[in-house]
Design a protein around this nucleic acid. Structure first.
Lengths: 188, 188
DNA sequence: GAAGTTGTTCACAGTTTCGTGAACAAGTTT
DNA sequence: AAACTTGTTCACGAAACTGTGAACAACTTC
């Protein structure tokens, strides 16, 4: 695929649309601790019918091969992408079932953060009992403690959740989830 | 409060514990699009029984007054903190009910991101119908579209949710939420 | 096996982010 | 009103992040 032959083959218009989808997913997951390039690469692999080589990916997004190499290797570690063959130059495909990874991230990252807060609050409460609360409002501290436990309850449950993997059945899932959430909302 | 008199007054040990709590909260909210200093300042104000001046805040965290000034003014815009009097040097207190702000953030930030993805996917699907799908798997594209709608359903419901404001009653809330989440889990 | 292609590594440039300190404005105290 | 304290603004460093290009290693093809 040299420059000359490339000149004669017009880029399909669908490519531009798919690129927009990849960018949107990239932006979205940027707010979830991943990098934009990870979302873009995963989305492209998820949408392509056949596995894609790193060179193609780099060309598609107009970025360097080094960037794609790093992104693919990290996505591979996360288990979000896999090589279709054994050898080094094998093209990659997306792992469509991303929930195990999302679940792991929540368990690893969010849980640790909340747990650190809970421990700190616990320590402050003990110190307050021993040496006095000083300028601080102990009830507020207890409230924060209760909130961390609430967060941990949710995290535990969300981690155990099952998210639909295939297209069929997702409609029902949405409806049932909506009904349950309405119930939850009424309780608040 | 000069350097000399300060030398004689030992820093209460509870302060160090509270600082740890503030740091933990700061780290946590860093993953939610805010800055660490915002979480630290809000937490200190929330835990102090009386309003706090900016100079005190800066001293407490050992950061510059300029940083605190910016942080407080942004927290003020968010409605997470408020001056207790009208004049410029008034000390600040925390707004404990943070849910309206969290809700706004979700509505503003997350919704826009998901909506952008949905629109892009919609466009790609239309293009595929007109000009053909090329190398792409249309079912996968439809699946992504269904996921964005699922996400939007959840966002809509979460935005309408009520989170407890006071300490009393939070225990019940946690229990009921847990029961509902177990139900949801069983559906998945 | 020589030449070309693909993936990896690494030092580096461009940008963004975080926080500082100095200068200034606003308010307080004596 | 002079001296001091407090809050604001802004230009600026330090550090982190993103992506690049060149050099190299692993593979393929002719």
């Amino acid at each position: 695929m040299t420059a000359v032959s490339n000149h004669d083959v017009p880029v399909p218009r669908i490519d531009a649309r798919v690129r927009q989808v990849c960018d949107a997913v990239g932006h979205f997951i940027e707010y979830w601790g991943f990098k934009s390039i990870h979302g873009r690469v995963w989305t492209l692999l998820a949408l392509r019918r056949t596995p894609v080589a790193q060179t193609d990916i780099a060309e598609f997004f107009d970025v360097s091969r080094s960037l794609v190499s790093a992104a693919v290797s990290q996505l591979s570690e996360y288990g979000l992408v896999r090589a279709t063959e054994e050898h080094r130059n094998a093209p990659y495909e997306a792992v469509v079932d991303v929930w195990p990874t999302v679940s792991d991230v929540l368990r690893g990252r969010e849980w640790m953060l909340v747990e650190a807060a809970r421990v700190a609050i616990e320590g402050a409460l003990e110190e307050a009992e021993v040496a006095g609360a000083g300028d601080y409002d102990i009830d507020r501290l207890r409230f924060l403690g209760a909130l961390t436990e609430l967060a941990q309850t949710f995290l535990r449950l969300i981690i155990g959740l099952r998210v639909p993997r295939r297209l069929d059945g997702i409609g029902d899932w949405v409806k049932r989830a909506a009904r349950v959430m309405r119930t939850l909302r009424a309780l608040g």
